[in-house]
Write a protein that binds this DNA or RNA. Structure first.
Lengths: 199, 199
DNA sequence: ATCATAACGGGACTCCTGTTCCATTAAGTC
DNA sequence: GACTTAATGGAACAGGAGTCCCGTTATGAT
């Protein structure tokens, strides 16, 4: 994790952070969390090994900072006008991310790192809170349109779309094909209409 | 992973395997995958360090063998007579497992290990295929009773129950309270009735 | 009971991760 | 542009993970 009181954040410090996080992301995507060697990160980032150890301390610390960076980079979101349409868009977006060679491996690695360290876990949870929060409004709108019962928890609906896809990625290993994204969206929508997510 | 052609599996070899897997499980639950030190495993199992390295080779190899052991130990399953009842039983069983101090940490660690190694991932997938397969019959029975549409994929229904719970454990960090298990079962049942899991 | 050898155990050895020390570079200030 | 010092980089160092060698133990076969 970055130290809090950085006195000289400009110029070089920022460049070093960018280069190191980029190298760390590449390496995580290529070899997974167990294969994250800080010395190699330093070499790829063309930065002194000492710098990496001093600023981030450990592999989990580096991943935690990477997650802060990932949470900051927001993606734009479109509205289709129907709950099912929005959930399908979300499901396919998540699926494409997880299927992507680099992104999918990166997510796996980051989640693995979070299971090993409390701080990294906190950063991961914050990341997902941000992402889920970005999509929640489309459920709120659906409630207002009468497509979902009053009292439905918007966050729970969004999580319900992602959950089956992550389960496949991390646990069961079943293929993350387009049909799985369609089912995830359809199931979440059906459960929502049935009131399964009413608080 | 165990070497295939074991010529003398009896007596000592079996005792060593049992002691090592037990120690590995304990250590994984206590410190997570990143903290799995094979030398310490050997010490706790009162076994030579060389033996652990020779037979399992690496941390991921050890976890893979542990997963084989976990898949072999089956849990009995009761039938309540209704789809929702069976799914609720399943959801609460999974929740209790993941919330349990030792078991929950162990599952996290095992999943982390699987993201780092193809063989370990294969063992994990086999483990879940076994577990899901054990519960699928209750969905088949529900279809025969007319509680679910013909053509519903039983495996998909069972996975849909677990998925939100694992998502909370690994990604979002939201609490795994009893309400979350209820919602998981209710959502899966509603989606099933709506035909979201028809092939 | 005897034998061949699979499997284990201890200790030495190697290599690599992570730390420490100090010289060098450049950010921020005047 | 000169100055202070935060931040970086290189090199030497220490500690531990993983390997190798070879003697010892105990399994399974006769």
């Amino acid at each position: 994790m970055m130290s809090e009181g950085t006195v000289r954040p400009g110029g070089r410090t920022a460049r070093v952070r960018e280069a190191v996080l980029r190298a760390a992301g590449d390496l995580l995507a290529e070899r997974g969390f167990a294969g994250l060697d800080l010395a190699e990160v330093a070499q790829r980032a063309e930065v002194g090994k000492t710098t990496v150890y001093r600023r981030w301390g450990s592999a989990t610390g580096l991943v935690a900072d990477l997650l802060v960076e990932m949470a900051d980079s927001s993606v734009s979101r479109t509205e289709t006008g129907s709950l099912l349409g929005d959930l399908r868009t979300n499901a396919h977006l998540v699926r494409r991310t997880l299927v992507d060679e680099r992104q999918g491996a990166l997510f796996k690695a980051v989640i693995a790192a979070a299971t090993c360290d409390a701080r990294t876990a906190a950063a991961l949870h914050a990341f997902y809170a941000t992402r889920v929060g970005e999509w929640a409004p489309c459920v709120t709108a659906a409630i207002e349109r009468g497509e979902a019962p009053v009292g439905t928890d918007p966050h729970e609906v969004i999580r319900a779309v992602s959950a089956p896809l992550y389960y496949r990625l991390l646990a069961s290993g079943d293929p993350l094909d387009e049909a799985s994204a369609e089912r995830a969206a359809a199931a979440a929508e059906a459960a929502t209409r049935a009131g399964a997510f009413v608080r």
